[in-house]
């Protein structure tokens, strides 16, 4: 479960004060808003990649544990971006191996490759195992990207306009497939999106513009008080 408490994004001329967010396993939260308002910034803060141009305060709780001060690598947060960034020096199977967690069951190369292959078989992409990312289509790359992120068994999945670069028909197909995967694996997800059509009906929505205040508005509010 993901909880975001007392979160505030503070820039020089504006501020966004978010309501507290509780996201259960398998639920999806979609963050919308005009470009430049800080959607991706918020997502990167959740990841642990603190932005430089704005200050974000608040607490992030994953399964009840406060992870706000932990480094990215200690959070176990998955990330899928518009550009999937599959590692170009590794083939599809090894990209997934790279993401698999280090557990006693997955300690040898053979075990890891086997596990990666099984994941690819489940989504019927086993034939891509030996291919390098440069030789995949956009849709294939997105699928492998999501599977790679899921292979890490993240506690929460962040999606930064993940399907924006795909053509409309692939985008719709990919969206349905991806949300189904996330729900099946019971992972809470936060997605940033421009496109309202991307959003499945079951998703929660948060429009950042609703909580946006300029400096003047804040001052006026304070003087009212």
């Amino acid at each position: 479960m993901l909880e975001i408490i007392d979160c505030q994004i503070q820039a020089k001329t504006w501020r966004i004060t978010l309501p507290d967010i509780h996201l259960n396993k398998g639920e999806l939260l979609v963050i919308t808003g005009p470009s430049g308002i800080g959607k991706s910034t918020l997502l990167h803060w959740l990841l642990g990649n603190n932005p430089q141009h704005v200050a974000i305060t608040g607490q992030i709780l994953l399964s009840g544990i406060n992870v706000t001060d932990l480094a990215i690598e200690q959070r176990r947060v998955g990330l899928l971006m518009q550009d999937v960034y599959l590692f170009p020096h590794l083939n599809v199977q090894d990209n997934i191996c790279f993401a698999l967690p280090k557990t006693p069951q997955l300690s040898s190369k053979k075990q890891r490759r086997f596990a990666a292959m099984k994941m690819l078989e489940q989504i019927k992409l086993a034939h891509l195992a030996r291919r390098y990312p440069q030789n995949l289509s956009g849709g294939e790359r997105s699928r492998v990207g999501l599977i790679r992120a899921l292979a890490n068994q993240p506690q929460v999945m962040l999606l930064d306009e993940p399907f924006a670069a795909l053509d409309p028909s692939t985008r719709e197909q990919m969206g349905t497939w991806a949300f189904q995967q996330l729900t099946e694996q019971n992972i809470p997800s936060v997605m940033v999106s421009h496109d309202v059509e991307d959003i499945p009906s079951s998703a929660k929505q948060l429009c950042l513009a609703d909580y946006y205040q300029t400096l003047e508005q804040i001052k006026a509010e304070m003087s009212d008080d």
């Binding site: 990841l47 480094a71 690598e73 959070r75 176990r76 790279f98 280090k102 890490n152």
Partner: peptide
């Protein structure tokens, strides 16, 4: 960044 998100 991605590698860090995988725990490296």
């Amino acid at each position: 960044l991605l590698a860090a998100s995988f725990g490296y």
